[in-house]
C-alpha cells in the first residue's frame, strides 16, 4: 500500500515539476509548483514527519507561493511580454546545463546506494523534534534563526526609501 502511495506521489512530484519548467504561462508554473510542494509534503508524511509536512505546506504553499503569485499578478506577465533571449545566451545555457548534467551523472552513477534506516521512527513527531532541536542542535538552530533575522532586516533596509541623506 505504502509503495503505491510513494510511486503515485513521486510521479506527481516529477510530472508537476516538469510542468513548472515547460509551462508558457508563469501563473501556471507557480500553480504546478504548489502541486509539487504538496506531493513532497505527502512524502514527509510517509516518512512519519508530520511536523515537517505541515510546516512545509504552511511556509511554501501557504506563504511563499502566494507571494510569488502576488508579484506575478501585479506585474501581469504574459507570453508576449516575456523577453526573448539572445542566441549566445541560449547556447551558453545549454552548454553549462549539459556540463552540470555530465558532472552529476558521473558522480552519482558510480555511487553505491544504501537503504536508509531510521534510528527512531517517531523522530518527526513534533515533541521529539522540538526536544532534539532545542537540546542537541540548539546552537545551529539559533544561528540559522539569527541568519533569517539578518535577511529580514536587510530586506527592510533595501526597500526603505532614503528620507534624509
Amino acid at each position: 500500500m505504502t509503495h503505491y502511495v510513494f510511486y503515485f506521489l513521486s510521479f506527481l512530484a516529477i510530472l508537476s515539476g516538469l510542468m513548472v519548467v515547460f509551462s508558457k504561462n508563469p501563473i501556471h508554473s507557480v500553480l504546478y509548483l504548489v502541486i509539487t510542494f504538496f506531493a513532497i509534503a505527502g512524502h514527509y508524511i510517509l516518512l512519519n514527519a508530520q511536523f515537517l509536512a505541515v510546516v512545509h505546506i504552511v511556509v511554501y504553499a501557504g506563504a511563499i507561493m502566494v507571494l510569488f503569485l502576488y508579484v506575478l499578478m501585479l506585474l501581469n506577465l504574459n507570453v508576449s511580454a516575456e523577453p526573448v533571449k539572445k542566441t549566445w545566451v541560449k547556447v551558453a545555457g545549454v552548454i553549462s546545463g549539459g556540463m552540470l548534467l555530465l558532472t552529476l551523472v558521473a558522480t552519482f552513477g558510480k555511487a553505491e546506494t544504501q537503504p536508509l534506516i531510521q534510528k527512531d521512527a517517531t523522530i518527526g513527531v513534533t515533541a521529539n523534534l522540538g526536544k532534539i532541536l532545542f537540546n542537541e542542535f540548539a546552537l545551529p538552530f539559533e544561528i540559522s534563526s539569527v541568519l533569517l533575522l539578518g535577511a529580514m532586516v536587510g530586506a527592510i533596509m533595501l526597500s526603505k526609501k532614503e528620507v534624509n541623506k
Binding site: 504548489v34 508530520q50 511536523f51 505541515v54 505546506i57 504552511v58 501557504g62 502566494v66 513534533t126 515533541a127
Partner: peptide, 18 residues
C-alpha cells in the same frame, strides 16, 4: 485527532486564498 492539529488548521487557512 492529529498531534499537529493546530498547525493543520493554520495550514488550511493559509491555502484558502488560492
Amino acid at each position: 485527532d492529529l498531534n499537529i492539529g493546530v498547525l493543520y488548521i493554520f495550514g488550511i487557512t493559509s491555502l484558502g486564498v488560492y
